[in-house]
Design a protein around this nucleic acid. Structure first.
Length: 559
RNA sequence: GAGCGCGUAGCUCAGCCGGUAGAGCAACUGACUUUUAAUCAGUGGGUCGUGGGUUCGAGUCCCACCGCGCUCACCA
């Protein structure tokens, strides 16, 4: 139970939104609150779809807490699947199948994947699978079902009746030539099944029909506006849907600000109050420029989830929805770590701060306990950060999680995938990050004669330590070999017993030739964890030029 | 043209209901008994875009201006 005063002053944005709904409830006397998110099924669900549903769910949760769950709420994911197919998407198979179905409602277009009743049904199923994957609580609604079942009929007839008022709102928003043929109703052609964009010649309010002419044949048709024989044009459609379903809240991107305004006016013309709204900012690409679908500079949800957790993505969506934010790979590690930090801080916060903590909103008020690792003292421990993991993977120089875990355990004794399953998943993300960003950036080179001789000596010296995991002893071996081949004669560095030290060149050599990078781990520790035999094999491959060849093959394969 | 947003340390950004500016990274110093990764401790660094206003007090609220970005004006 949260203190009412704390709730009243909670100023996280989902609460600000929820308060708008409380006020609306008092105004309208409604007995439930309906949230809607829209989806256009001519494409697959994407990261924006996730963001809209996630954010709406956060508002919904804040509202439920604010009203102590005394007001029922629903979230409808509405698919605009009666929309006509405008062009053939280029990311589907059997494109010729779609080419023959242009202008037909998406639910009357064959499924190019051959798995569902129609293209619209296919994408609807993908949407639901997508939302289910994240555990969202929602009801799915199909526009086609709503139109056909008669659920929209009453409101459609109201649009017909108030046709002039709707036109008066729409016409000023249109260009001169579009004005000539504009109609809020789009009849379905009785023969071709096409969604027709034609002028309405007559309308018969009593019969509930519109009369139009087929531009191709000149034939006159009279079509009922009800029963799925006609649909509405975009903005009137949105308004009609709000009115018919009783939508109280719907977010939209900033690109839809004008549409929201116009649809709101239409909703009022139909005698209803438009829903409360919220305009979120669009995402930017790597360079802060706009995201263009054709350029493909956006980030897909799968890409995010390859390197980051779903919670980190939720955090990204929670943060500053009104600001344009860069949505690119490089923001992922930070969001993963910010999430971990918020989660760790949560239990120690007082209620007021907890309500402003993103994890409260991300987890519906019940964030899980943080996975801590021993911090040495008697304290509760600390979170192993993702940036640290990324460093450890780079140090481990391996895509094998077991090797990575070797390094993790060295840092945090007693920790394992069994005791820290979420850390294990993070380790998986770190490995992928290594593979896709760190490894490609490596540049191996061949050893020259002097370096090759040194490496051969190192190999021979290591032969006497097979099986050793003594990092210090192994480090001493590395230094001893270095002293022979790369002595520091300047006198600046010395060994503990006063002999000459080793040039940094020796270590640079090791890293550049064996690891393909300029810097690296303390090499004795690396050998201890990586294995003496494995290290010797690594040296052999380097001397044979295989590391360089393999890396070039790896790079070539990625292209 | 209309609308939305941004401008705070070298970089990326936090700054809630106004109360003398913070983090991460980078840099620098030191510790970890041998100049390397990591880790830990510490240091330096900011006219808070500009100009006004409200206020005892403004990064924070209001107005104007400058700069930057995006969106909409055809389709959903």
């Amino acid at each position: 139970m949260i203190d009412p005063e704390t709730l009243r002053t909670a100023n996280a944005w989902p609460f600000e939104e929820a308060r708008k709904l409380v006020a609306r409830l008092e105004r309208t006397g409604k007995s439930e609150i309906l949230f809607e998110t829209g989806y256009g099924p001519s494409g697959l669900p994407h990261i924006g779809t996730f963001g809209e549903v996630a954010r709406t769910s956060m508002v919904r949760h804040a509202f439920r807490v604010l009203t102590e769950d005394r007001v029922p709420t629903r979230l409808v994911a509405f698919s605009d699947d009666m929309d006509g197919l405008r062009k053939v998407p280029d990311n589907v198979p059997n494109r010729e199948l779609l080419a023959g179905a242009l202008n037909r409602p998406l639910t009357a277009v064959p499924d190019p994947f051959g798995t569902h009743e129609s293209f619209g049904h296919h994408n609807n199923a993908r949407l639901r699978a997508f939302l289910d994957r994240f555990g969202f609580d929602y009801e799915f609604l199909s526009a086609t079902d709503c139109y056909r079942s008669g659920r929209f009929d009453e409101t459609l007839l109201a649009v017909l009746e108030r046709y002039d008022a709707v036109m008066a709102i729409m016409l000023p928003t249109l260009g001169p030539e579009r004005r000539q043929t504009y109609s809020p109703f789009l009849p379905l052609h009785p023969v071709t099944g096409h969604v027709m964009q034609v002028a309405i010649e007559e309308r018969n309010v009593a019969a509930g029909t519109i009369v139009w002419r087929d531009p191709a044949t000149g034939e006159r048709h009279e079509t009922p506006v009800t029963g799925g024989h006609a649909k509405l044009q975009w903005k009137p459609d949105w308004a009609m849907r709000w009115v018919a379903l009783g939508v109280d809240y719907e977010m939209a991107g900033k690109d839809l600000i004008d549409s929201v305004k116009v649809s709101g006016q239409i909703a009022r013309a139909l005698g209803a109050e438009p829903p409360e709204g919220f305009n979120y900012e669009l995402f930017l690409d790597e360079a802060g420029g706009k995201i263009s679908k054709s350029k493909g500079n956006g980030l897909t949800i799968d890409e995010w989830l390859a390197y980051g957790t779903p919670e980190s993505l939720s955090l990204f969506m929670y943060n500053k929805p009104r600001e344009a934010k860069r949505l690119h790979f490089d923001v992922i590690p930070r969001h993963v770590d910010d999430y971990l930090t918020f989660l760790e801080k949560y239990p120690g916060q007082e209620g007021r701060l907890q309500l402003g903590n993103p994890v409260w909103h991300i987890h519906g008020g019940r964030p899980p306990e943080a996975e801590l690792i021993p911090s040495g003292g008697n304290g509760p421990g600390t979170t192993l950060s993702f940036s640290m993991l990324l460093n450890l993977v780079a140090v481990a120089n391996s895509e094998d999680p077991a090797v990575l875990w070797g390094f993790i355990r060295r840092y945090a004794p007693g920790v394992s995938p069994q005791t820290h399953p979420r850390l294990d998943r993070l380790a998986g993300h770190a490995v992928r990050y290594f593979r896709d960003f760190v490894r490609p950036a490596k540049t191996y080179r061949l050893a020259d004669e002097r370096e090759a001789a040194a490496l051969r000596d190192l190999d021979a010296a290591l032969a006497g330590h097979m099986g050793s995991t003594d990092a210090e002893a192994l480090q001493a071996v590395v230094y001893e070999v270095g002293r022979t081949h790369f002595p520091d004669t300047s006198g600046k560095s010395k060994s503990p017993d006063g002999r000459p030290g080793v040039l940094q060149t020796w270590f640079a050599t090791i890293y550049q030739i064996l690891l393909g990078q300029d810097r690296g781990p303390r090499f004795g520790s690396f050998i201890a964890l990586y294995g003496v035999a494995e290290t010797r094999a690594l040296i052999a491959k380097a001397l044979a030029g295989d590391l360089l060849r393999e890396h070039e093959a790896f790079l070539a394969e990625r292209r």
